[in-house]
Design a protein around this nucleic acid. Structure first.
Length: 431
RNA sequence: GCUGAGGUAGCCUAGCCCGGCAAGGCGCCAGCCUUGAAAGCUGGUGGGGUUUCCCCACGGGAGUUCAAAUCUCCCCCUCAGCGCCA
């Protein structure tokens, strides 16, 4: 949520910033916020005056009763007042509701450094690491490779759960856990606290962390319950301190969430239709940070460096893009994507998303920064970044480390987590 | 799921029966005192506004009333016991 105070004091700057998104409905929403806010503020004054008078009269009547009988003139005025106040209060509530509804639908303000662009094709490459190999037409699609290894069953998963689900078996399950544990250990080394969060959230806190469209398109809702399956552990980690006051000396807070992620909408078909690249369910190790406002740009680079380190140690070439205006979501003010090189596809594909959400989530969640019981609260900034998602992280390993004989070399950094195993081989047995 | 107890400021609590300016403690901030610190003492300690002042804030909402933390109704949440259960 954008700071309403900023909309009052710097309307032109807010309008210019929202304008960069080239979505006229946002400017309409801004005007709706301004209109409702002005109306609300005017009515608050009228209502305050009426309440002051009501309190005066109540006091006088109480005093009069203590000494003698109530003065009739006072009683008449006192009787007439509540109805008028009720009318004003109704208008005040309506204006406030209208303002807040529009305010909550406005996206975050974009950082100055976000490049202008229409869609993801205009994201700007800011770094590359490693050298993409030559085309490898011999490589198998990762889904086919897994089936041949006897380490995944997609057809049966589709039968019992639908497209987008999968069974994994044997050493590949251990590789999944190894990849998570490797990323987690890296983060612990760098001062993060591992967190196993709840996998379902209530609607109210959930509305603080994401935008309404996600409830329609992305999240699974549990029937008969006010609960939603998390789409990423970012969500419970952001909601963790909702309504609380964080103290300066506790920041920065660095959390490493480990959880499954559930998503209804998983995008396109084609080359990825079968397999573990686009799925309704996957595991993710997520970085999350709470920082004072002035520290968020540096923290964004820190999270990005951690995510890059995961892929460097895995030996997987990648590039980093600065996501452009047309590809930005609602919540982030600035976002890097890390795109890993998939040698069979001869393409960079997104494996990490690293966002500075500034004060947008924290304000919606009612998180404040300051001393409990003292005035002068600020709103902290929140940031999040994938460390590794073990759908796509595994998929890229399967392409990068695939051998001509259909086996898969285990990346050296993962071997300690697999009892030193160097290679995934076909089991030759059911499943 | 059943029964009961609760939700008051950053935290803990009183007030609720019987309606009349939300009391107290802890923590925190400042001052006094002190070589320094602690203790002690004094004052302050939420949000908003047109800032000597006013309004709001007792889980949320509606109602009764001149006046609601307090009375009535609806809803939410937490805890405990029981039930069920990996």
């Amino acid at each position: 949520m954008i700071d309403p105070e900023l909309i009052r004091t710097e309307p032109a700057a807010v309008e210019a910033n929202l304008g960069r998104r080239r979505r006229p409905e946002y400017l309409d929403l801004l005007r709706a916020v301004q209109r409702a806010d002005a109306e609300w503020r005017a009515l608050v004054r009228v209502a305050d005056d009426l309440r002051r008078r009501r309190n005066e009269l109540a006091r006088q009547i109480a005093e009069a009763r203590a000494t003698g009988g109530p003065a009739p003139a006072l009683a008449d005025e006192a009787k007439a007042l509540p109805e008028r106040l009720r009318e004003i209060e109704a208008g005040e509530a309506a204006a406030r509701t209208a303002r807040d509804a529009a305010l909550r639908r406005l996206p975050n303000l974009l950082d100055e450094s976000v490049p202008y662009g229409r869609d993801d094709s205009e994201n700007v490459v800011v770094a590359t690491w490693g050298t993409p190999g030559p085309a490898r037409p011999d490589l198998r699609a990762h889904a086919e490779l897994l089936e041949r290894l006897g380490m995944a069953d997609f057809d049966r998963a589709h039968r019992v759960s639908g497209a987008g689900f999968y069974y994994l078996f044997g050493d590949f399950v251990l590789l999944d856990l190894a990849l998570q544990r490797f990323a987690l250990d890296l983060l612990v080394e760098r001062g993060f606290t591992p967190v196993a969060p709840p996998y379902l959230l209530r609607r109210a806190p959930y509305e603080g962390v994401t935008d309404l469209a996600d409830f329609e398109n992305v999240m699974y809702r549990v029937a008969e319950e006010d609960l939603y399956l998390i789409a990423t552990s970012e969500h419970p980690l952001a909601a963790l301190y909702g309504g609380e006051i964080l103290e300066e000396e506790d920041l920065p807070i660095r959390l490493a969430g480990v959880s499954p992620c559930f998503r209804r909408e998983i995008g396109g078909h084609g080359v990825d239709q079968k397999g573990i690249f686009r799925t309704h369910q996957f595991q993710k190790v997520e970085q999350f940070a709470y920082v004072p406002p002035e520290a968020s740009p540096a923290m964004l680079e820190e999270l990005r460096a951690n995510a890059e380190e995961v892929f460097r140690r895995l030996g997987i070439p990648y590039r980093v893009v600065n996501v452009c205006t047309g590809d930005m979501g609602t919540v982030a003010a600035k976002k890097y994507d890390i795109e890993a090189w998939f040698p069979r596809q001869q393409a960079y594909r997104e494996v990490v998303s690293c966002s500075n959400c500034t004060d947008y989530q924290a304000r919606r969640l009612g998180i404040r920064l300051g001393k409990a019981g003292r005035p002068g609260k600020r709103v902290p900034h929140t940031l999040n970044s994938t460390a590794v998602a073990t759908s796509r992280g595994l998929a890229v390993i399967l392409e990068q480390y695939q051998e001509p004989d259909g086996t898969v070399t285990v990346p050296a950094v993962l071997r300690p987590y697999l009892g030193g195993k160097e290679r995934l081989r076909p089991t030759g047995r059911r499943p």
